[in-house]
Structure formats: structure tokens, C-alpha cells
Amino acid sequence: MSIISVRDVSKDYLLGKTQVHALRGVTLTVERGEFLSVAGPSGSGKTTLLNLIGCVDTPTTGVVEVAGRDTSRLTERALTDLRLHQIGFIFQSFNLVQVLSVFQNVEFPLLLQGGLTRAERAVRVQGLLEAVGIREYGRHRPSELSGGQRQRVAVARALVTRPALVLADEPTANLDSQTGQNIIDLMREMNRKDGTTFVFSTHDPKVMAHANAIVRIADGVVAGREPVGAMA
């Protein structure tokens, strides 16, 4: 079963007094284990699509199914639970909790979930911090880290619950190219090792090159889906 199924989805919203048709009939299926890039120019609807998939927004028409659940039929609480247990978010601007240490930021979703002992959590968090290469920064506050380090924390936080699906909205937009490369490599490795599905938006061709498929969006519709192998 595909992890994401988007069928005939449109999304309108009001921007001031004008009706914006952010998406107009998008259909998209993402299988488990895919490493998918959503590409398109600014205003094409990439973020809107990711928001719908990430269960933080609901479509005007059409159906969005995530992990087999029709998101329009879920309550706010159930949607939140779905986000907590199935999805990991990597934000463009990192969005770390400033008053918590790096370790605690990564641990946060686990605490919301509950179920793990303190020791189990420590093992999981330390492992991830090591994987993203900031093990020694566990006790630091986010404000003491560079942009790349913060993004690594965000990646670790998104992965710590071992979600089936990780959504990343322009994960490298605020990073220099070398750091961006490292982050993509990291995500790629997680994808390979654990089979985690990644969907990320970008307009950086170098980043797109790492995906195994690219979905191009323009003007609110899917312009095409192509495997990356052909480009490389």
C-alpha cells in the first residue's frame, strides 16, 4: 500500500481579498521507501502540497490519504496523533525550541509519544545525534549552534520517532551548499538504512539529483513525474 495517496486535490485560500488557487487538481502517489523531491518555482504550490500531506492543512476538494487514513475524516486530535506517530517534519527555518538543549529538542517528540524509558530515549537520541554528527553538542542550546548544526538537530528530531514518512520543506534553503549536501546525504542514508519515505521540496538542482524521483509542480498542478536516474 502506498504511504501517500493524493487524489484530485485542490486547495483554495484567501490571501487578503483575493482567492488564491494554490492547488488545482493534484494527484500523486508515493510508495513506501521513496526519496521524492517536489520541485517547482516559487508560488507553484509545493508548500501547500507538503502541508496537506503533513496533515497540518486539509484540502478544499479531493482526498489526501496518509498511511491509509483519509485526513479529511480525522478530528484535530487524531490528525495531531497522526503527525506525532507517522510523520517527521524538517522545517526550512529549523524551528527548534530555544529553551531546550539540543538533546532535549530531539527527545521532545519521544516524550510526547511516551512509552520509552529514559535509558531507551537516551540511546535513541544519542545515536541520532551521532548520525547527524553533532554528538558533542547535546547539552548546547540551539542559539549556540551554527545554521547547519541546527538543521541537523531538526533532522534528528524529525527522525527520532522513526516515522514512516519525513517531510522536508526546503531543507537546504538556509544552508551553504556543503552543509546542504551533508544534510541530503544524511537523509539519503536514513532512507537507505531504514526505508524511511522522504518527501522534500526544493528548487536546488543539486539536491534534486539525490532523489529517486522528481515531481514537478507548476501553477498548482503536477507537471510531471520523472525518475532521477535519467537525469544523472
Binding site: 503533513g54 497540518v56 484535530e76 486530535r77 495531531t80 496523533d81 503527525r83 506525532l84 506517530h85 517534519f89 522545517f91 524551528n95 527548534l96 525550541v97 530555544q98 521532545f108 517528540p109 510526547l112 509519544q113 528530531r157
Partner: peptide, 16 residues
Amino acid sequence: VKEVGTMRAIGAQRRF
């Protein structure tokens, strides 16, 4: 707002 929104996106309920 941003911090709260992040927490909500990560999976914190409203009551949290």
C-alpha cells in the same frame, strides 16, 4: 507563535 506551531506540527496536542 512559531514555537507553539512547531510543537503542534511535531505532534503536541492543543491541551499541551
